[in-house]
Design a protein around this nucleic acid. Sequence first.
RNA 1: GGGCGCGUAGCUCAGCUGGUCAGAGCGCUCGCUUUACACGCGAGAGGUCACAGGUUCGACCCCUGUCGCGCCCACCA
Length: 860
Amino acid sequence: MSLQDRTRFDPAEVEPRISARWLADGLYHPEPEGAADENYSIAIPPPNVTGALHMGHALNGSVQDALIRLHRMRGQRAKWILGTDHAGIATQAQVEKRLISEGTSREAIGREAFTERVWEWRSEFGGTIIDQFKRLGASCDYEEERFTLDDGYAKAVVKVFVALYDKGCIYRDHYMVNWDPGTGSAISDLEVEDREVTDTLFSVAYPLSDGSGEVVVATVRPETMLADTAVAVNPADERYTHLIGKSVVLPLVGRELPIIADDYVKVDFGTGCLKITPGHDPNDFEIGRRHGLEELSAIGEDGCMTADAGAYAGLTVAQARTRVVADLEAAGQMRAAEPYTHTVPFSHRSGERIEPLISLQWFMRMDELAAPAIAAVREGRVRIHPESQSRRYLDWLENIRPWCVSRQLWWGHRLPVYYRGEETYVGAEHPAGDGWTQDPDVLDTWFSSALWPFATLGWPDDTPQLRAFYPTNVLSTARDILFLWVARMVMMGIEFTGEVPFTDVYCHSVIQAPDGRRMSKSLGTGIDPLDLIDGGPRPPVFTEGGDFPAYGADAVRFGLMAMSSTQDVRFSEEKVAQGQALANKLFNASRFILGKVPEGTGPAARPTTVEDRWILSRLQRIVGETTERVEVFAFSKAVLGLYDFVYGELCDWYLELIKTREIDDDLAATLTYVLSETLALCHPFIPFVTEELWTHVPGHEDGLLAAAPYPRVEPALIDVPAETRVADLITAVTALRAWRETTDLPPKTILPARIPAAYADTQTLIARLARLEPIGDDGEASALVPVPGGVVEIVAGYLVDPAVEAAKREQRRAALTAEIARAEGKLANPGFIAKAPPHLIEAERGKLARLREDLEETGT
RNA sequence: GGGCGCGUAGCUCAGCUGGUCAGAGCGCUCGCUUUACACGCGAGAGGUCACAGGUUCGACCCCUGUCGCGCCCACCA
């Protein structure tokens, strides 16, 4: 289609066409050759197979694609490792929901049939998010898509588990876990969310065994007292020191409990006396382990009271609480009951209240692997951006705790653990002999994703992919999985490959809803990136209703990068609109240039005038700035800088300056060069529009911009004098236009004027843009417009009101006089003269001299 | 409770190691069918840089405190 057929860039028409060309070309798939340090790779944070593209994916995708495209254009083999995560809990929950809607359930169909259903689900919906990445223009290696549960990956997971077991890092233990009654599984601390809840705080009296009195303890969970095994006080609490070593009798049960001393107990909270229930409270568990207390479980995984609960066995937790409270009251041991608001853990997945339980689980000891991961960041072998995030990373690793890696799910990597009676076998293969049964649990999803950067490349085999692309270069992610995922990848990477899995970690912003709340579908604050691209409906969080315009992928990419920062930011539709405007501006600038340039013009920098030298010099500046900004992950500055260049310098000034020039070979070549370089420079950020326009540039019909060389700074084209000359021109023209706005002159009137000699090389340009006609000495000036290095004298006779001009002159004199006074005052300050750096003093003196000259020129 | 960060034009945000920084985009006002673009062009108005002290010749930028907001970690029975 000819460019001249339309005046607007139409992403809906262009993007599918361009996308198809990229995919057909194969440039997304680099051959696994060469060494990792000459190639460039990024492992995508694998989206959940069941997921749909959300704002975080879109921003992260834009960022990673900009990096990948830029390095690909630099001639590196650039591989963006693609794949999806099996996402144990999330996926299992989705399929279970479907089963329930079909009137059946996971339990009813059994494990084998269930996992089969999940695989079916995956083949049906697993491609959705991949297709959405394509819509965004993400240049992932779609030819080698991986899945955290595919055969090769499973092999890597088993190898790692067995190796860590053999090393003694993985072990089975009774431990306090966050039991989620909703999913019937232990979940990690990181999957727990806190909610504020109002409970009743009960004060219960425990009589001393020797009959000398009682101590009062407070609890919101009286039913757990059935599993109490001690009472603790602070060793420094003089109210109780005499009781340490004595014992109390547990009401309703009659068990004798020692009174122990532990610093954990707060002297100034409650009665300063704490009942210890190692089986049902994480802190009590720790205390219990410190003091070697017995660990009783009064509550079972089914949410009912166990045999340890004695007379209460079989009741639900709620029933037991009611009974215990009633019995305590009947026994006269209840001292108080008052409302109490506090935060309580809930399952992020099922929404149910966490039941802390002691349970037999598989754990991984982390300290040994953490040490090298700490060193890697400390020593700068892994750099985290922004730097402030590395502190969080280090704090977490330095206080790391054992990781509960077993999950009571069916969807995931089943533990390579086998039992026969009292025997336990851990190994890649099913053990020989009869009677072995495999552990039913699967591994925490993050266990497998921790291997992502190398398991995707074929590890543990020594593959060409691994040699060519590992370690990867950059890992880009939101902060929230810095611990869950990033830290664990560093640990596993170092342990199993001997190398850090990436050298830079970029933590991008979290985009919040326009009102500052978290983006969430259920809150109505979520914005679907595809709705922005295609023009879908605005979610309720927008005050304005209706559909989004079909902004297109470039606009969304630009907008998201423009919004991003080192901290969280609010979504701003204006930034997306700005991206759309930029795409459209490039489209029209290209139409303009290509409409002037004859067929067959090759791009070349052949400046013949000051404005040619200026734009070429400015182009070098923006090339350098953009490159530097990407290197330090300043994507917002990078894209906004490109916007400013295209609008502010290329279109507003250069194209206007050359508009009336005859197009000779030199100018045609230069225009083509500037356009080509600008398109290439912008391509990693807004790939579609630039690729489309590239095809219209003479000589580019067949080649892909995505495979063209990225611009580099050409020092020979930097021209400081030209930059100064045109900067003055811009200031002068702006001043002249502003002056005209203050008059009643019809906008188009051409006015005779004397332009200072300093503007000899640019005066015809100034005259055209400011609608002046340069004249000689004849005629009396009716207005004076100050410009850098002189004054433009307007000779407009009666068209200009002398009184108005005189008033303006007076105003200017007053402003200059005030400025001069300020500068004089500063220079008269002995402190300034004595302590300020000499170059600043000089600058101030120069400024004063100029101000005095300017005042002189205003005449009298 | 600990840690981090933020409060700059109506809105969303830039302002590097203190010395033309008081800025950009959008919005708003005024004027333009100027032969690439009205998703355009030109010109404007708008801020005591949260508040109070302090350091300094000089602070939006450093220090202290106060108020407001966000996030992370720990999670006081």
